[in-house]
């Protein structure tokens, strides 16, 4: 540590940064590097064969499709929930606001078995859907339901502060200029919310892609049909196919990192606009 360069009279720069870098490397960076080093032992042909096997491709389709659908539903309903929580005074608002974080606090395995119980054919919701020929548990719809559950807080929590900071002058001007309330909402209120809405959507999507615990119970885990990509990684591991499992994991890691980068860019842009 050269105190002349940092020109800070506060002590502890070397100790705190040193500890941070060592801990970060040991816990996160080195183990993550292990995944990339593991697949370096594969030839390109072996790698592409492992990640483009029909069963793997079917799992990508399910994971991407269900995550996209869940994030889209969360974007719509999350917007409504955030708007209601910020703008409408009603008794019990605090309790409902706290409840929004439930998917962060409830262990995923618990959410998984609870959702399965609700949507199985004797369950609270399942028994009403069954006579109409709609099955949720052990189908792709079940995967979508679980991913919707875990993604909701991302959209609501990203939107809430932005709705709170909307300038009332814009809505006043719009009303003064003769727009009715619906026109104001659609043309004045909604556009500045779009960056935050997109960020929340991307976060919910990224979380859903990697989700495991809440999905495995309700999905039924049928190969080619209701098998998500993270489950396939576990299946390969249990068959001691370390290279195969890691190859799929690396594909997922790259997608996750790209999404993380995208989310960071979106947040930076949203902050500039705000």
């Amino acid at each position: 540590m050269s105190s002349s360069r940092h020109r800070s009279v506060l002590p502890g720069f070397g100790l705190s940064l040193g500890f941070t870098l060592v801990y970060l490397s040991l816990i996160v960076l080195v183990p993550l590097a292990a995944a990339f080093i593991e697949i370096a032992g594969l030839t390109w042909a072996e790698f592409t064969a492992a990640v483009s096997d029909p069963r793997v491709v079917a799992s990508y389709k399910l994971s991407f499709g269900a995550s996209l659908a869940a994030a889209a539903v969360n974007a719509v309903f999350g917007l409504v929930v955030a708007w209601v929580l910020v703008r409408y005074p009603f008794p019990g608002r605090r309790v409902i606001d706290a409840l929004v974080d439930l998917p962060f606090a409830l262990p995923t395995a618990v959410a998984g078995i609870a959702l399965t119980a609700i949507y199985s054919k004797n369950g609270w919701v399942g028994q009403w859907l069954e006579p109409h020929g709609m099955q949720v548990a052990f189908t792709r719809v079940g995967v979508f339901v679980a991913l919707t559950f875990i993604g909701l807080p991302f959209v609501v929590r990203t939107l809430q502060p932005v709705i709170e900071e909307l300038e009332p002058e814009l809505e006043e001007a719009s009303a003064t200029l003769g727009a009715n309330r619906l026109q104001t909402l659609a043309r004045v209120v909604l556009p500045p919310l779009l960056p935050a809405l997109t960020t929340g959507f991307a976060m919910a999507f990224a979380r859903a892609l990697g989700e495991y615990g809440s999905v495995v119970f309700i999905s039924g885990n049928m190969p080619m049909k209701t098998e998500i990509t993270p489950l396939l990684i576990i299946t390969k591991l249990e068959q001691y196919d370390y290279a195969g499992a890691t190859a799929i994991a690396v594909v997922m890691l790259i997608v996750s990192f790209v999404l993380l980068l995208l989310i960071n860019l979106l947040q930076r842009r949203a902050r500039r606009i705000a």
Binding site: A206, I234, L253
Partner: peptide, 11 residues
């Protein structure tokens, strides 16, 4: 950003 399953796998 990392799937929990991958967090276990790397160890």
């Amino acid at each position: 950003a990392v799937s929990p399953v991958i967090s276990g796998l790397i160890y």
